[in-house]
Simulated assay, not measured.
Amino acid sequence: MKLFDQTMNTLEQSLNYATKRNAVITNNIANVDTPNYKSQDVVFKHALNDEISKLETKRTHPKHIPFLEDNEPFRTITKKNTLYNHNQNNVDMDKEMSDLAKNQIYYRSLIDRMNGKLSNLQTVIRGGR
């Protein structure tokens, strides 16, 4: 018997994504004045799978780690194709602050949804009271 439905699993994965994205954005903000620092972002794996599938990879031994297996549905990428500062740094502070605010709203909405699901479970356990 499953105690939680697929919604809780999706919420958990979404919270993991939002947490990772928050860490990456705050790292970008912290390195805004670091010379040669390249900003990073968190993207969903399916966006990368199209590009990765074009690469030819081959496992020559059964003990080699498979190339595409990963438990997280997202990855951290480094943005190398832009340049905003004279010190070779590409962190756009306005964009990072905007992304941070959006991510915090997203995270809070996920927490509210999860609290609602757990509140429903608590109501059922108490017999509807």
Rank of each mutant, 00 (worst) to 15 (best):
I105G: 01
D112F: 03
M93G: 08
N87H: 06
K80V: 14
I111Q: 07
N81F: 01
G116N: 04
G116I: 14
R129E: 12
V124E: 15
N120R: 10
I125S: 02
N87Q: 14
K95L: 00
N120D: 14
L100Q: 00
I77P: 01
K80R: 13
G116D: 07
M97G: 06
N87V: 13
G116S: 12
K79E: 03
G116C: 04
G127A: 04
Y107L: 03
R129K: 04
G128M: 13
N120S: 10
T78V: 12
L121Y: 11
M97N: 12
Q122R: 03
R108F: 13
K102G: 13
N85M: 11
K79L: 06
D92Q: 03
A101W: 06
R129D: 11
L110Q: 11
G116H: 09
K80M: 13
D94A: 05
T78D: 06
Q88G: 13
R75V: 00
S119H: 11
I105D: 00
Y107G: 02
S109K: 08
N81E: 12
N81C: 05
A101Y: 14
M93P: 03
Y106L: 03
R113W: 14
N103E: 08
I111H: 04
A101R: 01
K102Y: 14
T76D: 02
S119C: 09
R126I: 01
N90A: 12
I105H: 02
Y107C: 02
T123D: 07
I125L: 04
R75H: 00
V91K: 00
K102T: 14
L121Q: 11
N89C: 10
S119A: 10
H86D: 13
N120M: 13
R75G: 00
T78S: 09
A101L: 06
Q104K: 15
Y84G: 14
N85C: 07
G128R: 10
D112P: 05
S109E: 10
N115A: 09
I125C: 01
I77T: 02
A101S: 08
K80Q: 14
D92W: 01
Y107M: 01
N85G: 13
K102P: 07
G128V: 10
Q104W: 10
M97V: 06
Y107V: 05
K117Q: 07
I77L: 01
K80E: 15
T123Y: 11
N90Q: 11
K117V: 12
Y106Q: 03
D92F: 02
T78L: 04
D94N: 04
I105W: 02
D99Y: 04
N90K: 05
K79V: 10
V91S: 01
Y107N: 02
N81M: 04
R75N: 00
G127C: 07
R75L: 00
R113I: 13
E96S: 03
K117D: 04
S119R: 05
N90W: 00
S119T: 10
T78M: 06
T123K: 05
G116Q: 07
T76Q: 01
L110G: 05
I105F: 04
T82H: 05
H86K: 15
R126C: 01
T123F: 11
